[in-house]
């Protein structure tokens, strides 16, 4: 017996216009984990979520969510899941309270329970001040908070959050992250689609990297970082002009220069190499400012995507 609450096998979605949104995707999600689908815009994240939510028919493959075959019975899965869609589909002329309350009722909550949960979510998401205001009169960030809050109505076992923190300010994002963590503690399984690498890095137990509809990597953050090797990154401000040109000549062949944007240079240095020390000593002796960083998910994603495209070209 495994404890997978979601199982996706060989899922492919090709739209009528020929666009391959998802190609041969397979993964499992364990009960109670935060599983992130990470990828740039157009990677196929939303298409994947829509199929898992029983809103979009796949071209081929299978999806089992909480024991329900989603392709055969797309409506049955809606008893177990909640969705925060990518776009804040609000009903402008309802107040914040009404919006949450009526969607709670559609979720199947009794009038009393819907009222209680609505009040609790209004407090939790810091919406008390706006309780009786029309949703349409609020900022995009506040509307987003309402739609995210709505996904937690009815204590669904599984919550799909598609870009939940879009339009939120840094404080709002962190607040939503802490709420997501709370629900995870209570045993809710969370499927998070995001293009914010920091969001995925802070929240996820496991990550699925998608690019052009295909899986680029799948695993825990540590596993995924291992895929691109053990290295550190040294970022140097391009302000140093001539010094930088000399430096580049000197290190050419020894280090990989991952990015030269005109405003900075990223140099990838193998983590266990003495050359790191040598390079740092050199930078200090020349009084060149630098920043030493461990690879972030973004670096890993860029590296993996680059490898994928090279494979594609070859």
């Amino acid at each position: 017996m495994n404890n997978f609450i979601i199982t996706v096998k060989n899922l492919t979605k090709i739209y009528k216009n020929g666009v391959k949104a998802n190609v041969n995707i397979s993964f499992n999600i364990r009960e109670g984990e935060i599983f992130s689908i990470l990828g740039p815009n157009g990677a196929g994240k939303t298409t994947l979520i829509k199929q898992l939510a029983g809103l979009l028919k796949p071209t081929s493959g299978s999806i089992i969510v909480s024991g329900v075959d989603v392709i055969r019975n797309p409506n049955a899965v809606k008893e177990y899941i909640s969705l925060c869609p990518q776009e804040s589909a609000i009903i402008e002329h309802l107040t914040v309270f009404e919006h949450l309350y009526y969607f709670g009722r559609l979720k199947g909550l009794s009038s009393d329970k819907a009222r209680k949960e609505t009040n609790s979510l209004i407090s939790k998401f810091d919406l008390k001040k706006y309780r009786d205001q029309y949703v349409g009169s609020l900022s995009k960030g506040l509307q987003r908070r309402i739609i995210v809050a709505q996904a937690f109505l009815g204590s669904s076992k599984i919550v799909y959050l598609d870009e939940p923190t879009t339009h939120l300010d840094p404080v709002g994002r962190r607040h939503v992250w802490s709420i997501i963590r709370e629900y995870k503690k209570d045993g809710t399984t969370i499927l998070l689609a995001t293009h914010f690498m920091d969001e995925a890095e802070r929240l996820s137990d496991r990550i699925l990297f998608l690019n052009n509809g295909r899986i680029v990597a799948l695993g825990s953050i540590r596993d995924i970082k291992k895929l691109v090797g053990n290295y550190v990154k040294i970022r140097i401000d391009a302000y140093y002009g001539e010094e930088i040109t000399k430096l580049l000549d000197r290190i050419k062949g020894f280090y990989k220069i991952s990015k030269y944007s005109g405003s900075f240079i990223d140099i990838i240095v193998p983590g266990e190499d003495d050359e790191v020390e040598k390079l740092i000593d050199f930078l200090i002796s020349r009084r060149i400012e630098f920043e030493l960083r461990m690879p972030s998910l973004e670096d890993v994603f860029l590296e993996l995507s680059e490898n994928e495209s090279k494979k594609g070209i070859n």
Partner: peptide, 14 residues
């Protein structure tokens, strides 16, 4: 077109 239908369809509503 404003995706409200999709939101409602994601609920257990016939």
């Amino acid at each position: 077109l404003l995706k409200r239908l999709e939101l409602i369809a994601s609920y257990p509503v016939s």
